[in-house]
Amino acid sequence: MTIHVENLKFQCIIGILDFERTSPQDVIINLHINYDYKEDFIDYAKVVFFIKETMIKSEFLLIEDALKEINLKLNKEFKAIKSIDLKITKPSILPDCMVSVSNFTIFES
């Protein structure tokens, strides 16, 4: 099974520039989680809450650090996860484009 979370938008502190450390900015999360569905399912509402809470509380300097931390925490919380394809976008950081960083992680059983 695959869970798709598309265009999850919220505000948080993320970035290394001075103004990014003082004012929350929009981020957009796109996520695909592949997992083995047997008897238990992964509650996508909990996944969304988990991601938002992690990003808001952590105030990451780099998107790369946020990606690594979210992957580790999701894998620890939801043992059925086989892989995560996660993209974090900062839609307003540059005036003429949206900037994103993504990664795809496969977890060993």
Rank of each mutant, 00 (worst) to 15 (best):
M1R: 05
M1W: 03
I3N: 05
H4W: 09
H4Q: 12
H4P: 05
V5G: 02
V5C: 04
N7P: 12
N7A: 14
L8R: 01
F10T: 11
F10I: 07
Q11R: 10
Q11H: 09
Q11N: 14
Q11P: 08
C12Y: 12
I14P: 11
G15M: 06
G15H: 05
I16G: 14
I16A: 09
L17G: 11
L17M: 11
L17C: 10
D18C: 14
D18F: 12
F19P: 14
F19C: 11
E20K: 02
E20R: 01
R21Q: 09
R21Y: 03
T22M: 15
S23H: 09
S23N: 15
P24M: 13
P24T: 10
Q25Y: 06
Q25C: 13
V27K: 00
I29C: 04
I29E: 04
N30P: 10
N30F: 02
N30R: 06
H32E: 15
H32S: 11
H32M: 12
I33K: 00
I33M: 00
N34Y: 04
D36V: 09
D36T: 09
Y37W: 07
Y37G: 09
Y37D: 13
K38E: 15
K38I: 13
D40L: 14
D40V: 08
F41R: 10
F41W: 13
I42T: 01
I42G: 00
D43C: 06
D43G: 06
Y44V: 04
Y44A: 02
Y44W: 04
A45E: 12
A45M: 09
V48W: 00
V48K: 00
V48Y: 01
F49G: 10
F50T: 10
K52Y: 06
M55Y: 02
M55Q: 04
M55S: 02
I56L: 05
I56Q: 06
K57G: 06
S58M: 06
S58W: 06
E59Q: 15
F60M: 07
L61A: 13
L61C: 08
L61Y: 07
I63K: 05
E64A: 07
E64F: 02
E64T: 04
A66P: 09
L67E: 05
L67G: 07
L67T: 01
L67D: 01
L67Q: 03
E69T: 11
E69V: 08
E69F: 04
K73A: 11
L74P: 03
K76C: 14
K76D: 13
E77R: 05
F78H: 01
F78E: 04
A80K: 03
A80Q: 01
I81E: 00
I81A: 01
K82A: 02
S83W: 04
S83G: 03
I84A: 00
L86Y: 01
L86H: 00
L86T: 00
K87W: 02
K87D: 10
T89Y: 04
K90G: 03
P91L: 08
S92F: 13
I93E: 08
I93L: 11
I93S: 09
P95M: 13
C97T: 09
C97Y: 07
M98V: 15
V99N: 13
S100W: 08
S100Q: 07
V101N: 02
V101A: 09
S102T: 07
T105Q: 08
T105F: 03
I106N: 06
F107W: 02
E108F: 07
E108R: 11
S109A: 15
S109T: 15
S109M: 15
